[in-house]
Amino acid sequence: MLSSSIKSAVLPVLRTFVRFKSKADVSPSTQRVIGQMSALSASKKQPKVIRLSNEDLIKHKSIVNAWNLYRRRKVSRQRDQLNKQYQSIVDAMEDLKQSEPELYVWANTKQTNKKFPLQLRVPTDYPPSQPWVYNVKK
């Protein structure tokens, strides 16, 4: 970025921060930088610690535990499924190697520079009415 394209007037931000508001007038661009600085700093943005009663804390902990258990089971289920898929790929290729060696060579040829189609989208709650455009112009 060139210095000529900087939009605000370049005024030195020389200001001693004091506890109370001073009457010294600050240019709007300086004020903006001060605002950005205070937005970045962490002071006064930390929310208060939630004070929970013992009963509420136990409730919360049991909900969190149940959620973690659910997540863990989901992860292990997905992992097991992937392992099974992998094992079946290995078995199928081994089978092909024994029965059809020519087809095996063809099947085991590495494909290079393959990409997923751009139409593959991350699913949303509200997909477009025409989710797949069939005649894409490239």
Partner: peptide
């Protein structure tokens, strides 16, 4: 969707 497809695509016996 993606993970199993990638595994199949990159598989080499």
């Amino acid at each position: 969707t993606v993970k199993s497809d990638l595994m199949l695509h990159f598989y080499e016996h």
